[in-house]
Amino acid sequence: MNIFVCVKQVPDTETKITPTGDGSFIETASIKWIMNPYDEFAVEQALLIKQSNPAANVTVLRVGSVKDTEALRTAMAMGADDAALVEAADNLDSYSIAKALKGAIDKTGKKPDLILAGKQAIDDDALQVPQILAQMLNLPSVSVIVGFEQAGNNVKVKREVEGGALEVYELSTPCVLACNKGLNTPRYASLPGIMKAKKKPMAQYSLADVGVSDADRRVKYSGFRLPPEKPPGKKFDATDAAKQKDVVSQVVGLLRTEAKVI
């Protein structure tokens, strides 16, 4: 059984983001990279499946820069068997990333039985790659899964919808599943795991190797800017009963004209 897990490396949640001088991207030099937290659920699910099916092989895939391979090393330290990295700029669009992932899967020569990913990356929040990848591979796909069960050649997954209700899907494998928080509790990479990870194989490809070119780009970033700083809140004094009527109409007026929320 071949399980592929797609992971992305994203800035640590505590990182202070600064756009580059020309606004084309963000400063990456001083960023501490971590595995996208939603991808940790995908890695954990793959490892849980491997626990009950020791013959399973878990391959982690990533498209991005080679400066730091933190996410792949972490996944292998957690227990994944091997990894493949497609070297690319960190600001590719979802279509190019999905195409590169498909190319990387083809390159490994292994036929996928299951492809797992996080439901979204916490940096660009695009929520697109797993679905595009499924489309390219012509495979069934469910996103935002919070429950997983294997049923022979099929898998049964639960998906959270508005209001806390759950949808239950049964899919035939191979399929693409995008994982959400609540699916499992990701394990820590243990120290022996970190030592073992160093010896695990990591294939490296260029975008050309996996058949992706500039022409595949569907979205180009035109500029990065920090959101404007929030102005300080306004305080209204309504302790004097006689003035309360005026204060209320003043607040309502401002909510209408300035905040434009009513």
């Binding site: 090393r73 330290a77 820590y188 990479a189 243990s190 120290l191 970190i194 160093k198």
Partner: peptide
């Protein structure tokens, strides 16, 4: 790099 990873793990645990 290995020591940095070990340190990161311990800090995450902490």
């Amino acid at each position: 790099p290995e020591q940095r990873e070990i340190r990161e793990l311990a800090l995450k645990f902490a």
